[in-house]
Structures are given as structure tokens and as C-alpha cells.
């Protein structure tokens, strides 16, 4: 008995210090996966030979609800998949549709590939810029829109094309921009 008490105490102390250590490297937003997120990620893991393969899917599952991937989300996902958080970070920063910083409620992906370039991408991008007062890679002050460039959207017959969230639009003339954006509040 007398031997056990300090041992238990030590264990508690070391757990607490581990917690502090993690907080110091980024778990500052008290991030926790919801049960729903966790079960979707676990379901995803079952489709592949090992859990690592679900890393992109897991990031998408979390981002779908939260809008972006915080440091806490990276660590939480790495815990579920059982792989280092640095690997999740490597994946999260590689793929253009995973956002490591907050984005607006609506994300505009403007296709800048050759067919859209030939049919008026620059004018379209400039029209959005002046309508919203942001450049590519920026978010409006009211967090309503983020504008990003995207690879060929496979809508070359409808250039210039863009996507807002999951909606594809094209051709979009500069004069159409204002009315189109109105549809996303």
C-alpha cells in the first residue's frame, strides 16, 4: 500500500506533464472529433489495406464539418489512424483542397487552365476580385468568400468556368459575377 501510493501519484503527474507537452506543440484549440466524425473515419479505414490510406479521407471528413483543418484536427486524426501527426501534416499541406487555415463560408475555385485562359479567365478573376475586394488566396472580411485557383475543371467546353462549393458554373462572363455571387449568402 505505502509503495503503491507514490507510484500512482507519479503516473498521474507524468500524464499531466504529457498533456502540457502536447499543448505546447499545438493542441491549443481543445479539438475533439465528434462521434460521427470518428465513426466515419473508422468506416473509411476499412476500405484499404491499412489505416494510413484513410488519411486524405479523414481530413476531408473533418473539413466537411469544420471548414478547415486546425492543428488540433491534425493531431486528433493522427491519433485515430495511429500514424505520426507529422505524416498527416505532410498530407494536409500537399493537397490543394485541404485547407490548413480558415476559409470563407463559400470557396470559389476559379479554373485558370489553358481553355479557360483562352476564353476569358483573367477578366473573370478580375471581376470577382473587384466585386469582393480580394485576390486569389484571400478571404473576404465578412468570411463569406475565399477565392482560389484550381486546375482544369474539365469544363473546357464551358470556359471560363468556376466552382462555388460543389456547384460548377460556366461559361461565366464578368457581367454575370455579381448575380452569381448573390446566390451564396
Amino acid at each position: 500500500m505505502t509503495m503503491d501510493t507514490p507510484a500512482t501519484g507519479n503516473t498521474r503527474a507524468s500524464k499531466a506533464s504529457q498533456g502540457n507537452l502536447i499543448a505546447s506543440v499545438g493542441r491549443t484549440d481543445d479539438f475533439e472529433l465528434t462521434d460521427e466524425e470518428r465513426s466515419e473515419i473508422e468506416h473509411e479505414m476499412g476500405h484499404y489495406e491499412n489505416p494510413r490510406a484513410a488519411s486524405i479521407g479523414a481530413l476531408k471528413i473533418v473539413q466537411k464539418r469544420r471548414g478547415w483543418i486546425s492543428d488540433g484536427a491534425v493531431i486528433a486524426i493522427s491519433d485515430v489512424l495511429g500514424i505520426p501527426s507529422s505524416d498527416i501534416e505532410g498530407v494536409a499541406t500537399f493537397y490543394s483542397l485541404i485547407f490548413r487555415q480558415p476559409v470563407g463560408r463559400h470557396v470559389i475555385l476559379v479554373c485558370d487552365s489553358s481553355s479557360c485562359f483562352l476564353t476569358g479567365h483573367d477578366e473573370l478573376r478580375d471581376a470577382i476580385s473587384s466585386e469582393l475586394g480580394i485576390n486569389l488566396g484571400q478571404t473576404t472580411g465578412d468570411d463569406r468568400f475565399t477565392m482560389l485557383p484550381v486546375c482544369c475543371l474539365g469544363a473546357c467546353d464551358r470556359g471560363p468556368a468556376l466552382m462555388i462549393n460543389e456547384d460548377l458554373h460556366g461559361p461565366v462572363e464578368p457581367g454575370d459575377v455579381s448575380a452569381l455571387l448573390e446566390r451564396y449568402s
Partner: peptide, 11 residues
């Protein structure tokens, strides 16, 4: 993963 600029057939 159709992304080749100018390509819209697989879609």
C-alpha cells in the same frame, strides 16, 4: 483524376 488542361471526356 482528369485534370489535363483542355480535357473533359472522362467526366
Amino acid at each position: 483524376d482528369e485534370m489535363e488542361p483542355g480535357t473533359f471526356k472522362d467526366r
